[in-house]
């Protein structure tokens, strides 16, 4: 292998190399890091961020952004928890509509998709910039969460619901299964389907895609709806793991997921990036968080370190693309 080839493969696998180095360092400084328990623990923790970040990747690939995922996550988690616990009381007749586990989850997922669809609608129909449209949704969904929960957590949701976030299946935590399936589906969509190709094309050159006969608006609506749906899945996972829907759940999750996407090498201007890159980004953030906790680093310093890593990742990326 000549030097140029060597260089390209080094660049291609830079985040993987960074992750391996990080793990080696952490297993040296902390004997608790490289244990089976801790590994599953980390993976369970990052599964929520992976779900959200997969949606975020699709949105960023079409040169958009979705700031509303954290709030949508909270709202959908709360709705599922509320329906499961209290149903919908009908005041006039003293009756209430109860929900099965599946029904409550389904409603949560549908609400997430609809909120995403609404984002897409304001963006495509009224040409609201994605940053603004989803910033508005961030506030709206948070407000709706407060209204729905009246500001209090909804807890004690029952064992079968808790199993989703805390249970194991074939020796692997259930959230890891769920996020894994999400990742696989997303990889298939981006690599193998017409929708995936359209996503890359629109991000690469929206105007050329339009003139090539691609229905841009339909693709955008679909992508934002998927992002909403995945935020709802994240919401159900969080709620189930804590056995409680917190009105403040998911605050600043959008930033973690954007960080994962960016560290994973996806271009914020769209058209370039992969799902697996994002997964790697999410794992790096998760491992870093976990390692800093194990090393008893103060939470304040953790934030500084995380920010520095994001900056470093993008700076390296930019330096590499300049050399191209």
């Amino acid at each position: 292998m000549d030097l140029a080839n060597y260089r390209t493969s080094l660049v291609k696998f830079q985040s993987l190399i960074a992750l391996v180095l990080l793990c080696i360092v952490l297993s040296i400084v902390s004997d608790k890091f490289l244990t089976v328990d801790n590994t599953w623990n980390v993976m369970r923790q990052i599964s929520v961020n992976i779900c959200i970040s997969v949606g975020m990747t699709l949105v960023i690939l079409i040169a958009g952004i979705d700031l509303s995922v954290g709030s949508v996550l909270a709202l959908c988690g709360a709705i599922t928890a509320g329906l499961l616990k209290n149903g919908i009381p009908i005041q006039s007749s003293n009756l209430y509509i109860g929900f099965t586990l599946l029904g409550a989850i389904l409603v949560g997922l549908i609400v997430g998709s609809l909120l995403g669809l609404f984002n897409g609608w304001t963006i495509t129909r009224f040409k609201v910039p994605p940053f603004v449209a989803t910033l508005a949704m961030l506030t709206i969904a948070r407000g709706l969460t407060m209204l729905w929960t009246k500001g209090f957590p909804i807890s004690n949701l029952g064992d079968s619901f808790d199993y989703i976030g805390t249970g194991w299946f074939l020796g692997i935590p259930l959230p890891v299964w769920i996020s894994g399936i999400v990742v696989i589906i997303a990889v298939v969509i981006t690599k193998k389907t017409v929708l995936g190709r359209y996503i890359y094309a629109i991000g690469g050159n929206e105007s050329a895609s339009k003139l090539s006969g691609i229905n841009i608006n339909k693709v955008k609506l679909t992508v934002y709806a998927i992002a909403g749906l995945l935020a709802a899945i994240g919401g159900i996972l969080v709620t189930s793991r804590l056995d409680s829907a917190q009105p403040n759940a998911g605050i600043s999750y959008e930033l973690d997921s954007i960080a994962a996407v960016v560290i994973g090498g996806t271009s914020l201007s769209g058209g370039r990036g992969t799902i697996m890159g994002t997964v790697l980004g999410a794992v790096i953030i998760g491992v870093l968080n976990n390692g800093l906790v194990l090393m008893n680093v103060s939470p304040f310093w953790q934030q500084v370190v995380k920010g520095a890593v994001i900056l470093l990742a993008v700076m390296i990326d930019k330096a590499n693309s300049k050399n191209e």
């Binding site: 190709r197 890359y200 094309a201 690469g204 050159n205 105007s207 050329a208 895609s209 003139l211 090539s212 006969g213 691609i214 058209g271 370039r272």
Partner: peptide, 18 residues
């Protein structure tokens, strides 16, 4: 460049785009 091609895609992906 502006309206015809997705520049960072390859030839076959551009040809099949429509």
């Amino acid at each position: 460049k502006k309206h015809g091609l997705v520049l960072n895609m390859d030839i076959k992906n551009n040809i099949s785009l429509s």
